[in-house]
């Protein structure tokens, strides 16, 4: 139960952060990626603020033997930089640039904006399941 409440808390903070940062506006995201045109560097500050905060906190957290409500830290076991990683990142980047939504802002927007976000989230889920179905064969 503690795990569920801490996930709810972390999710809430994440949603607040996304909304405050401006990342829930796809126009702002596209303007961030538009470096040769109407560039809006705001999202560098989102990434910067997130990375600096997390880097500092992780140093203290990983100094501990284990998290508070679990027996282990669950860190990715895959470390390879291969074609799959690069192709995936390219496909994601193309989709991100086309519509201005990455997974977090798309999901977070469902609650306060009708239309676009739900279409994106459903398509995104379909894409995830499609890849899984193909990869398993």
């Amino acid at each position: 139960m503690a795990k569920i409440f801490s996930a709810l808390l972390a999710g809430g903070l994440f949603g607040l952060g996304l909304a405050l940062s401006g990342m829930v506006d796809p126009n702002k995201v596209v303007n961030f990626l538009d470096v040769t045109g109407n560039w809006d560097p705001s999202l560098m500050f989102v990434l910067g603020g997130g990375v600096i905060t997390t880097t500092i906190a992780y140093r203290f957290i990983f100094a501990k033997k284990k998290p508070l409500f679990d027996d282990d830290f669950h860190l990715p076991s895959v470390l390879s930089i291969d074609g799959r990683l690069l192709s995936g990142a390219v496909l994601f980047g193309v989709g991100w640039g086309l519509i201005g939504y990455c997974p977090g802002p798309a999901v977070a927007s469902i609650g306060f904006r009708p239309g676009e976000p739900l279409i994106v989230v459903i398509s995104m889920l379909a894409g995830m399941l499609l890849y899984r179905a193909i990869a398993r064969r």
């Binding site: 808390l9 972390a10 607040l16 940062s21 500050f45």
Partner: peptide, 16 residues
């Protein structure tokens, strides 16, 4: 907003 996202990521790692 970025700092809040960082706090969220830290909370999830520290607790879970």
């Amino acid at each position: 907003g970025g700092i809040l996202i960082g706090i969220s990521a830290s909370v999830l790692m520290l607790l879970n």
